[in-house]
């Protein structure tokens, strides 16, 4: 037990034992295991999260190699959920990692009632809207994340809030259509998401809730969309 705790000891500058126990008890549904999702799962498990459900239908391909953490020439054509589960268990063999090779829309909502949080790291507006609606149906918060080029956005969406639906009004892509995703932005945005996640666990009033934290790595600035707050 002590040896197991030692693995997380360097986190205890920003969290305490109580936070760790809360973190251990939470079940998190992570949807989308691309550049954001892979990095985020890695950071969450290293922080001390023990119970994750991974959902993605895709396999690694060559274009993922620039940014997706567990992609390499040996994992191309492998399902992302399989590789990420394997890698997360290497980091913490005591974690419980469930997986589904499917689209989130194909999983019955009744099977998702056990989760405390949804994490949205999908790469398309339709799925983002679906996850926002799913959070409302399950009455659990959704941690939203998205990125493109030098830019990203992060925010907690509480059940009933429609910021996601108001932002993504159709199935059009955002800046990622032209700017794509370089090696560094997904990991930076995943880090911001995990810091938001920890603050949520800690019941901090510093979480970004029902608004977006807009991250601009080119101009080195982060602002909130409700700048009057």
């Amino acid at each position: 037990m002590r040896e197991q705790m030692k693995q997380f000891s360097k986190n205890f500058g920003v969290m305490d034992q109580k936070d760790y126990q809360v973190l251990k008890s939470k079940r998190v549904l992570v949807v989308g295991l691309g550049g954001l999702g892979g990095n985020l799962c890695n950071l969450l498990v290293r922080l001390g999260l023990h119970q994750l459900m991974l959902v993605d239908f895709d396999r690694y391909d060559t274009t993922n190699l620039n940014r997706q953490l567990f992609s390499n020439h040996n994992t191309i054509n492998e399902y992302k959920v399989d590789i990420i589960k394997e890698e997360l268990l290497k980091i913490n063999p005591n974690a419980t990692i469930d997986k589904s090779i499917s689209k989130i829309q194909d999983i019955p909502t009744s099977e998702l009632k056990v989760y405390d949080y949804i994490i949205d790291t999908v790469d398309n507006p339709i799925s983002k809207i679906y996850l926002s609606e799913l959070g409302r149906k399950l009455n659990i918060p959704v941690l939203h994340g998205a990125c493109a080029g030098w830019y990203g956005q992060v925010g907690w969406i509480l059940p009933g809030n429609t910021l996601i639906e108001q932002t993504y009004i159709n199935d059009e892509q955002g800046l990622e259509k032209d700017l794509m995703n370089p090696s560094f932005t997904p990991s930076a945005i995943a880090s911001v998401m995990v810091s938001e996640f920890l603050k949520k666990i800690q019941n901090s009033d510093k979480t970004t809730t029902n608004q977006f934290l807009l991250v601009d790595l080119y101009n080195n600035q982060i602002i909130k969309t409700n700048s009057n707050e």
């Binding site: 550049g35 507006p125 493109a148 080029g149 830019y151 993504y168 955002g174 990622e176 997904p186 700048s227």
Partner: peptide, 9 residues
Amino acid sequence: IITHFVGGG
């Protein structure tokens, strides 16, 4: 704030 949204993952 005038910005452009992002949707990539």
